[in-house]
Design a protein around this nucleic acid. Structure first.
Lengths: 218, 218
DNA sequence: GCAAAAGTGTTACCCTTACACCCATGA
DNA sequence: TCATGGGTGTAAGGGTAACACTTTTGC
């Protein structure tokens, strides 16, 4: 009976609102194979850990964060391994708030790469990143996961620019506002943008409780 | 370093249009543990097989079919196993046309259970079945996967009854027809139902080519 | 005062929903 | 002739999309 080592790979995604672009966290591999190459952060599943736990600990190691959006992407069976010892991997993807990253969480061997400037990755990591982005695009249409990427408080046009960047479209700002302001779970705060060289806009936030109350179970 | 045996479990789903209900194929376990219990058909990944290949061969073994709709559901890390030898499993789900089942494909140890009459399953199989149905419900809303479950040629009200059963709703047949007939990829055939004790309806089929032409890439 | 984004209404179109009756067939 | 589903149109409401100008701030 064949046995597998199981690696967990994490596609950790953040949104840089300054540059209006999505980013992925990559780390430089410190071990062979592919030593020195940029790759997805990952690790092997330990004896007592579930896949999800392993993914969460990788996320903690790389970003210093816990309790962030983390979902399974897909399990992959690598077939290029040798003999009796195959490697499988389960990929996870995570959405993190860029603003919450501390300097301490910027690891020596890690770097955020813009979505459109990712180097060629070893193994099947390129495929995993691409699949994660497909998934995220789908997901954003269906559920308010955007709010895991945006700062807790955001002006409406930051939200708009996010959608414009993600789908590479132009959105009419009047229609966009009408649509967003109708949502019961987006609430305006008594606070405005600061240090912007234009008329400051009100800040909004996502009220998760109201979202759950208002979303029908089917 | 811990190693895993990896099992593939398949949630094989069919639609019985006679009874208007979704069914799941279960098999009686012939080996310990849980020998004699109904469970999801499955097997361990062999040395040279990918996960998907393993799933496809299980599907072939159980239904005699190839080239059917088969997708990965999720990878599960069982944590109740002993010592150095853990078991992981990757679940797949499949949609098959009930009409295409031959008698030969009705295995001695297998039986189709109605969605609402599934016995308590061992391991995490109950969880997997439930998750597969959630996924399928979602999927049907987003993509025309219904047509993997329905017969190749179907009258409109069979389609309507399928939706009504899946979501447990009542649909107005005028509105339903308007909506379906507007779809460019549902084509009416020059053929009508036979042996029905009411006015026979025209048969329709799903034109996959037209679907792909007409669906935008984003 | 200039640049840059905030903020604001109306109209047309489309899609969805609600709703009732005659038609063709097998038994 | 009866039971059963096949087949048809219209009106109202809600959401989406196209469209331009004034306001407020930093510099």
């Amino acid at each position: 009976m064949i046995h597998f080592k199981i690696a967990i790979d994490c596609v950790i995604v953040g949104y840089d609102s300054q540059l209006n672009e999505l980013k992925v966290l990559l780390t430089e591999r410190v071990n062979e194979p592919q030593k020195g190459k940029w790759a997805l952060p990952g690790g092997f599943v330990k004896k007592t850990e579930s896949f999800e736990k392993t993914a969460a600990s990788i996320l903690l190691r790389e970003t210093g964060m816990t309790n962030v959006y983390l979902r399974q992407l897909k399990a992959y069976s690598l077939t290029d391994a040798s003999q009796d010892n195959r490697i499988a991997s389960v990929a996870y993807y995570s959405l993190v708030k860029f603003e919450n990253l501390t300097d301490a969480s910027r690891q020596q061997y890690s770097r955020w790469f813009p979505w459109n400037g990712i180097p060629t990755l070893p193994f099947d990591h390129g495929k995993k990143v691409a699949f994660a982005f497909e998934k995220i695009k789908e997901l954003v249409r269906l559920e308010p996961v955007v709010y895991h990427l945006l700062p807790t408080k955001f002006p409406l046009n930051q939200l708009q620019r996010f959608y414009e960047a993600l789908y590479n479209i132009k959105i009419d700002n009047r229609n966009f506002r009408k649509k967003i302001l109708k949502l019961p779970y987006i609430e305006r705060l008594d606070e405005v943008e600061k240090n912007v060289s234009h008329r400051p806009g009100y800040l909004y936030h996502f009220n998760e409780k109201k979202y759950k109350e208002n979303s029908s179970p089917y």
